[in-house]
Amino acid sequence: MDSMSLKDFAAKWTMGLILITAYVFLYMPIVHILFASLSNHPNFPYPPNFNPKSYVNLATNSIYQSAFVNSLIIASCTAVLSTVMGFLATIGVLRFAGKRALFYAVFFAGPLFVSEILLGISSMSLYYLVFGLQGNMVTAIIANSVHCFSFCFLIMAAMLYKYDWRMNEAAIVCGATPFRAFLEVMLPLTWSGIMGSLIVAFVLALNGLDISFYLLGATPTMPSVAWGALRYGVKPELYALSTIINAAVFLAIIVLFLKARNTKTAPV
């Protein structure tokens, strides 16, 4: 028995060690560039010091400003479009697909299995090379939405799978119209899934390069400007940009997490 528990102990800590290594591997670069963005010596910022110069450079750089606005537009529109589509798809699969549920689910997850660059290139082929259409914000938003759609679908499906649809019926027999039942009962109960879908789609579209790159031509977005700047070497401004984005993503996830936990402890 003793040797068994020793083996269990060893297995547990080997796995734990791999987990810790993974965290270090994933977060060391992020933390490193946080220091680098704030340092006078971006290459080796230890001991760390505090110099906001790179952030000031970033904020005053007009290319980054217009890129930021473009990215924001693309990301917001993509988040809404892909979440709406994903929501329809989720309800369709869970409620109305019947025996074809698996078929539709696989189809709706399809874009997940085509890489971003192929989505970008194939969309460009269709719009530009076949129809002669120039790339623009609309096509970029649509192509990004296709990519994010599958994520939105899976996130909301995971949430709505647990939802008891008879809740809507309960509201309707209480005298609510179907729309009111959706608004007052279903939406609040599934809000964390919908919010998660919006945030993930927004962030993916904000930071994805491949799709926007092939569909926007010369219009700058944040990832494309960052990618362009890389040709001239990594600059502290890029570290600053990356740090800001990382911080924003973290903030969004923390808000979502706390919100999901709150709705779990009191109601539900």
Binding site: Y23, N207, L230
Partner: peptide, 27 residues
């Protein structure tokens, strides 16, 4: 979530961060 979150900051920015570790002048 801590494992999944880094995925969201995008390929370009993540590569920039990684190059900060691996590059000739990296960490």
């Amino acid at each position: 979530l801590l494992l999944a979150v880094p995925f969201l900051s995008g390929e370009v920015l993540r590569l920039i961060a990684l190059q900060g570790m691996l590059g000739p002048t990296g960490l």
